[in-house]
Amino acid sequence: MMTLTRENLINLILAVMLLAVPFAANALGQPFYITLATRIAILALAATGLNLALGLGGLVSFGHAAFFGIGGYVAGILAAHAFSGDPLLFGLSGSKQMWVIWIAAVILSALVGLAIGAISLRTSGVYFIMITLAFAQMVYYFAISWPAYGGEDGLSILVRNQFPGVNTMRPLTFFLICYVVLLLGLGLFALIRASRFGTALQAARQNEVRVATVGIQPYRIRLTAFAISAAVTGLAGALFADLNRFVSPSMLSWHMSGELIVLIILGGTGRLFGPLAGAALYVIFEFALGGLTERWQFFLGLILLAVVLFARGGLLGLLAGKAKHG
């Protein structure tokens, strides 16, 4: 049973606050804040995916934008085909159903994650960072040069995709969908972290040879973790496309990969709610500082510097103390 540690209490407060803000905004007739909270939930989900690879496995992937963008393009392309009625591949038609899009985004991201991971994980350290970046840039330039789906201009989703029984065009409804998916993503992270697989993944991060001598192949568990991580980030990408009703190559750019890493560092690497804390901080900074100056990222840089220098455990480390795992 989960004990009420300080960290769990903070997690609970974060989860409740994220849920409360859109309801308050809805009551006050301020839908903008609902969109802000939805953005936090989706970015937190994307970063939770990366947290599996980076936080548990120590795999600093600088290419997770590829999966985020692939998820986005799956949503955009399926919706575009459903709208136009043109068949997709092998006689399959598009879809406006979110759950169909989610399944497709998860499967495609996981498969691309497997392919990228299978090659990247043969390297480590700075080479791993560079090779994941290179793969993501390949996907980015492919999207730019693909005129059928908007190329550099991106692809609009005319009407937000549907979910059975609810009106997804209502901001609060769409937020709730994203919130539940985020909770499921966090649940998956917690489950994996507590499993033998997750423990072995963390052990492999600490010492590869020692893990091998107890009969575990580090490469295989890392590849599995990388594919699951890609799938979760891909799912977030599909939701992000639906939030903006637009998908463009910017979702695939290396800035996005960097942003996801920044979210995790801000919140707390390897912590269950680190990505949510980081995403909340990031979006609030973006909103608050962005209103004051165009160069808000300069100030974010300063804050990131302070976190790296003085609060290595991120916001959660600062509030809840040192992580159990380091």
Partner: peptide, 28 residues
């Protein structure tokens, strides 16, 4: 590979108390 050797039935206690320092006893 070393993990195959372990699966063949070799349990190694290496020189110098090599645990996974940042995992709990139970997790190790």
């Amino acid at each position: 590979r070393p993990h195959h050797i372990a699966k063949l039935g070799i349990g190694l206690v290496p020189e110098g108390r090599r645990c996974f320092p940042n995992l709990t006893v139970h997790e190790n």
